[in-house]
Nucleic acid binder design. Structure first.
Lengths: 219, 219
DNA sequence: TGGAAAACGGGTGTTTTGCCCGATTTTGTA
DNA sequence: TACAAAATCGGGCAAAACACCCGTTTTCCA
């Protein structure tokens, strides 16, 4: 990779956070924010338009499609450099994001300098994980009770997240642009893989595994 | 209130967000950030030390003590002006924060300008609520589930508790010595009364209303 | 580039749901 | 005590959802 200007697309739904990125990144001589998006849809669109060298994205987007957005962008451009920068310290989410094609995962608990370093790392093709996430992944893989959830495919995980926030099959189908029938089948497979027999158990499990936090679905 | 310099204490556990505040607030001629805290403990300490005119705080702090911190500070200084600025759009959280003594509640979904206005409002003694929160609170108190849940009969409430701990209709029928059909009918009536359309929403609602606590399903 | 895994979605019999109804049993209160 | 109102119980039935099967296409790596 070259050491020239790094053109960055910011994806975060909170304007104040984007202000923060700007203040921070524009101090770096060779970083340049070419565009900002506040939703997954917009991110995909702007990525195609601007072709940035690097994409910094939060996962909690209004259309709930953080990981899905990574998949879409990577499908369109497998060489895309995507760095996840989010508050979620959950190793499950981190590993799904990486499975989906992210090249880095840094939590917002880290100091700005860590983000800066990660940007350089990812830009040079080095996978960047913040220490807290590395630790969480390590702990999880040793004694993790979340074994079954890891068997889920990226798509299944995505659908799980939507299902447990009480979206209907039709809504999910709409969001993901697939048939409601596929959603239903996938929903069934998720339940079978996780060994639960109804949606209530599934919800409890999702909360327990911090796939969602209790209250996330309260509007 | 005077119109002089507003001395602000920032409380947010994410450095990048604090960068965002800085970039934003320092553009305002009469706002001045006197200190930053990244935990509730630190916030309390710095408040005593700096006596700011206004405190902007996020609720999701590492020591999980956002609302608790508000209480502590208000106890120490009842005149403290506290403006909550958080991602939580939950009306229950908002009302608890206000009960605890916050004089404003703005979600991070809002544009920076909304925050700026709220700062002026709170500084002048006007309660500031962002529109999304106003709406959420209104919905919640008018047609809200808090009311609806009280409409449940004793039997319905009993069945609700069993349902949301993931017991099957057959099991519940067994426990209560009634027909599974009655359980199913009752289950349906509960959902109708509470205005939810599936069991996942029902589960979330039950957790939110503390019919069962989230800890009950953890492990 | 070939083979495995994942994603997608049709088909179909079985359950469950949503909503109706009437029959009993409390319950509150005049 | 009387008696209406509310709560409880459960049958019926069409519509919807589910569980499970399957084959096809797409994606991903080695």
């Amino acid at each position: 990779m070259n050491n020239r200007q790094i053109n960055i697309l910011l994806v975060d739904d909170h304007a104040i956070v984007r202000e923060g990125y700007r203040a921070l990144l524009e101090k770096q001589p060779n970083m340049n924010i070419v565009a900002e998006a506040s939703s997954g849809e917009e991110a995909y669109f702007l990525f195609k338009q601007y072709r940035p060298n690097l994409l910094i994205m939060d996962l909690s987007l209004p259309d709930q499609s953080g990981i899905e957005t990574i998949s879409r962008i990577k499908k369109y451009e497998p060489a895309a450099n995507i760095l996840v920068f989010t508050m979620h310290q959950n190793p499950l989410i981190a590993s799904k994001a990486i499975q989906a094609g992210a090249r880095g995962y840094i939590t917002k608990n880290n100091l700005p300098a860590v983000l800066i370093q990660a940007i350089y790392d990812v830009h040079c093709g080095v996978m960047a994980l913040s220490q807290d996430i590395e630790k969480a992944i390590a702990l999880d893989s040793v004694a993790g009770p979340a074994v079954a959830i890891k068997e889920l495919t990226v798509r299944e995980f995505e659908i799980l997240r939507l299902v447990v926030t009480a979206k209907s099959a039709a809504e999910i189908a709409e969001i993901l642009n697939i048939s409601p029938k596929t959603v239903a089948n996938c929903h069934y497979l998720i339940k079978r893989k996780l060994g639960v027999s109804n949606d209530i158990e599934l919800t409890h499990l999702a909360i327990k595994m911090q796939v969602i936090d209790p209250g996330e679905c309260l509007q």
